[in-house]
């Protein structure tokens, strides 16, 4: 790809300094880029650091957390040094974010109309009347029937799917270049999930956005993402094109994750499991962070953490099993 990336994250580290002098390395040395029009999925279990990665990009990390190191470039512009006022301009205009639970993301005491027009008036400096017209248009764009009436309603009067549509309308209101969606459909039923994911794909096309989709659902990834990054213990352990990653899975963690899913087509008596649980971010094992749960663990894995290496073109893996494979070719 020759185009310039919309988002470029370089060696990002976000740590949380806990009370008892523990340091939770929630995001630990992550680098990736997202290009215009692309859908990139960030996959991992709870505690893997995927949401913190997104919040770091949005500069929404609060104490005791802090971005310790690294660069975040939006359209080539460094945003880590920006002051809160400058950052407010970036948020909404350049990048927007949708959260998992739209009920907690919307303000319960303001009408839907209030919340959408506020953004337009603040970011686009629109007049009241223009903002109202634009807001109704946006609601229609995201497939909300009776948009004029919905403008006067409060979040609790809407269903989960409708709320998420409102969130999408708000997110695209300033036509951002990058939309970050953090588990946008996890709280929704499967028939509504399909509607919302299709809507996001449609909006992505319409507004030429790039999409960073954070999810734990590999099915969603397979249907909607161009590229996948698998996170474990605050680091990316595997990164490739979606089809390549699902067909030629390399990392033992990714393999375990796929095997533990019940398969709709085959009947297995037992599911594959990954033994143990995700280690807390303040207490990673020495060496490879997956070593304590890995079925292929070697002595070396317990000593030092492997690097993320490109073992085939565009297929990156952080695992000693594939050491030197890239170099032989």
């Amino acid at each position: 790809m020759n185009k310039e990336p919309v988002l470029d994250v370089e060696q990002l580290k976000t740590y949380f300094y806990l009370d008892d002098d523990k340091v939770a390395r929630a995001v630990d040395n992550i680098s990736f880029s997202i290009y215009p029009g692309e859908t990139v999925a960030l996959v991992g279990e709870s505690g893997s650091g995927k949401s913190i990665t997104a919040l770091s990009v949005m500069q929404l990390i609060n104490k005791p957390g802090r971005i310790v190191e690294g660069n975040i470039l939006i359209d080539g512009e460094e945003i880590i040094q920006l002051n809160p006022k400058q950052m407010t301009k970036i948020r909404g205009n350049e990048i927007a974010m949708i959260f998992q639970e739209p009920m907690t993301a919307l303000n319960p005491v303001y009408t839907i109309g209030n919340q959408i027009t506020e953004i337009l008036r603040k970011h686009k400096k629109m007049s009241k009347i223009d903002a109202r017209d634009k807001a109704i248009n946006l609601l229609k764009t995201v497939g909300i029937p009776r948009a004029e009436e919905i403008m006067k309603e409060y979040p609790h009067q809407l269903s989960g799917g409708m709320r998420q549509r409102v969130m999408i309308a708000m997110a695209i209101s300033c036509e951002p270049k990058l939309l970050i969606a953090d588990e946008p459909t996890t709280a929704l039923d499967v028939t509504i999930q399909a509607q919302i994911l299709d809507l996001m794909a449609e909006m992505k096309e319409k507004y030429h956005m790039a999409l960073l989709l954070i999810t734990h659902d590999v099915g969603v990834v397979s249907e909607y993402a161009d590229r996948v990054m698998v996170m474990y213990g605050g680091q990316i352990v595997e990164h490739a094109q979606t089809k390549e990653l699902l067909r030629h899975t390399k990392h033992p963690y990714t393999k375990g994750l796929l095997e533990s899913l019940p398969n709709m087509d085959e009947d297995a008596d037992r599911l594959g499991t990954i033994k143990g649980t995700v280690p807390p971010a303040y207490n990673f094992p020495a060496g490879c962070r997956f070593s304590a749960r890995c079925p292929f663990v070697m002595e070396k894995c317990k000593q030092s953490n492997p690097e993320l290496e490109e073992i085939e073109t565009d297929h990156f893996v952080r695992c000693y099993l594939y050491e030197n494979e890239g170099e032989q070719e």
């Binding site: 999930q193 399909a194 397979s222 909607y224 067909r247």
Partner: peptide
């Protein structure tokens, strides 16, 4: 409406989704 994991080299044409 369940998103399925597609690992086939040449995926069969998918059944039309009932939306």
């Amino acid at each position: 409406s369940i998103p399925v994991i597609d690992t086939d080299e040449n995926p069969a044409p998918k059944e039309e989704k009932i939306k």
